[in-house]
Design a protein around this nucleic acid. Structure first.
Lengths: 108, 108
DNA sequence: TAAATACATTGATAACTATCTATATGTAAT
DNA sequence: ATTACATATAGATAGTTATCAATGTATTTA
């Protein structure tokens, strides 16, 4: 479990607007201009949010002519779910009892 | 799906220190003084973080003598996993095709 | 009663971030 | 070429937050 990457994903998701963007993209690929139609903020603000999401590995982009198409990264979907399950595992499978435990590893 | 509550949980989780606290608590109940031993920041800072986690519904607390014991909320564990699964569902079960869809409901 | 321990609150500060306007870049259409 | 469209970047600002020192409040122990 990549702790830093997971925190990065959480930070990217922890914003009302960005969560809504993820929600939109969960339905399929969209270009920035279409995403923007769902919000009231300006285009540079959307550009900022998309950059945050990309840097965190949440979305990937593909340029096609004038348009930039954004897609939820399959790796993000898989990793975020898996990391969440590990974090919130019941005590029997608590990550503290595993080699990958961040706490054990970090505290020694 | 309670969108606002989910965002609140994400915000509470989206901090290195608080995520580590959740990680610690996933192994079982702990008092604040024991949690503090795993960090280098001061006691008021931990108090602040615990309040953030409590307000978001991530942890619950129980006072016993001098000690305050913190526990991961079972509701949080269940709801966060469920909401994450819904958010990142594949397109066939995309929440946009459901009544509970925030986008559809919010955009009309 | 006095001292020590566990925790919360207050007020201040530095760092971060969401947003804006203005502008630049690249692409398509006229 | 010129205009229109889609997007990114730069710089500024206002709001948020993580942190600290200082202090207050219970609770336990000596």
């Amino acid at each position: 479990m990549d702790y830093e990457k997971y925190v990065g994903m959480l930070k990217a998701m922890a914003d009302e607007k960005r969560l809504k963007i993820i929600d939109l993209l969960s339905c399929g690929t969209m270009c920035a201009c279409d995403i923007l139609k769902h919000f009231e903020f300006t285009q540079p603000t959307l550009s900022h949010h998309m950059k945050v999401l990309q840097t965190a590995g949440v979305v990937s982009s593909r340029k096609e002519g004038k348009w930039h198409y954004y897609t939820l990264s399959p790796d993000y979907i898989r990793e975020f779910k898996a990391d969440t399950d590990k974090l919130l595992a019941s005590q029997e499978t608590c990550i503290c009892h595993q080699e990958s435990c961040q706490i054990a590893n970090k505290e020694g």
